[in-house]
C-alpha cells in the first residue's frame, strides 16, 4: 500500500506520520507543497503542524498551495485523504469537509490525551476495528469545530460525524469537550467517507514505551482495510 504525506512549510508532524505509516507497512513518500503531481497513492495524509505559520486563518494558505489541487482532484475521484490537526484545518479550508475550526473556547492551547468515540464504522478508516473508544493525543489552539445549523443537519443526516470527544467509558458530554466543538465533534468525514479530518493524533500513540497503543490499532486496521 502506497501513501503520501504532504509537507507544508511549518508542518511538524509529517515525520511522525511517516514513521507511523512505515511501521505498519505503508510505502510512504514525502511530498513537498510546491510539487504539482501527487505520486501514485492509496492514501494521502495532510499532517499536523502550523502550515505557513497559521497566517490569516489556520490552514487557509496551505489550502491554496500547488499540491492541493492534485489532492482535491484525488479526493474527488474517491481517493482516501486523511487530515490530522492542522491537516483537518487544511481540509475544511479547501472545502473537502464541511465546517471550520475556530479558536478553542477557553483560549488555551490544549496538549493532552483525550478519549474519543467512533460513531460510524461503515468506512475504510474504521471498519473492522473491534472497539469504539480510543485514547489519542490532542495538541491544538484552533480545534473548536463549528458549522452552520444547516450544515450540521446535513452532516448528521449523512452520518458524517467520525469521532466525538468522550470520557474513558464513551460518555459524550459537554464536560469531556476540551475545546468547545459543536456536539463534541473531534473529526468528520466528507459525504462519501473517503476524506477524514480529525483533531486527535493517532500517530502519537504507536509506541507502548512512549504512549498508548491505540494509534497502532488504528494504523494496523487502516492498512488492512485499504488492501
Amino acid at each position: 500500500m502506497k501513501s503520501s504525506v504532504i509537507t507544508f512549510p511549518g508542518s511538524n508532524c509529517d515525520r511522525d506520520m511517516d514513521v507511523a505509516l512505515k511501521k505498519f507497512g505503508f510505502k510512504n513518500k514525502m511530498v513537498w507543497h510546491n510539487d504539482i503531481e501527487l505520486p501514485k497513492s492509496d492514501l494521502v495524509v495532510l499532517p499536523g503542524g502550523f502550515s505557513y505559520g497559521d497566517y490569516l486563518r489556520c490552514g487557509s494558505v496551505a489550502s491554496k498551495s500547488k499540491i492541493m489541487q492534485s489532492v482535491i482532484n484525488f479526493a474527488k475521484s474517491g481517493g482516501m485523504v486523511m487530515g490530522i490537526c492542522n491537516g483537518f484545518q487544511i481540509l475544511v479550508e479547501s472545502g473537502l469537509v464541511p465546517g471550520v475550526l475556530l479558536r478553542n473556547k477557553y483560549l488555551a492551547f490544549i496538549c493532552k490525551n483525550v478519549f474519543v468515540k467512533l460513531d460510524n464504522k461503515n468506512n475504510h478508516y474504521f471498519k473492522n476495528l473491534d472497539k469504539d473508544i480510543f485514547e489519542f493525543h490532542i495538541a491544538h489552539n484552533e480545534g473548536n469545530y463549528f458549522c452552520t445549523p444547516e450544515q450540521l443537519k446535513e452532516i448528521e443526516d449523512n452520518n458524517q460525524i467520525a469521532i466525538y470527544y468522550c470520557n474513558n467509558l464513551g460518555k459524550i458530554e459537554e464536560k469531556f469537550n476540551p475545546n468547545g466543538s459543536i456536539k463534541n465533534i473531534a473529526g468528520i468525514f466528507n459525504k462519501e467517507k473517503n476524506v477524514l479530518g480529525m483533531m486527535p493524533h493517532p500517530e502519537r500513540m504507536i509506541d507502548n514505551c512512549l504512549s498508548g497503543e491505540d494509534g497502532s490499532l488504528f494504523f494496523k486496521n487502516l492498512i488492512n482495510s485499504i488492501k
Binding site: 486563518r57 487557509s60 479550508e93 465546517g99 471550520v100 463549528f146 458549522c147 452552520t148
Partner: peptide
C-alpha cells in the same frame, strides 16, 4: 476566495 471564510 481567500481573505474571509464565509462560513463564519
Amino acid at each position: 476566495k481567500l481573505l474571509a471564510n464565509l462560513v463564519i
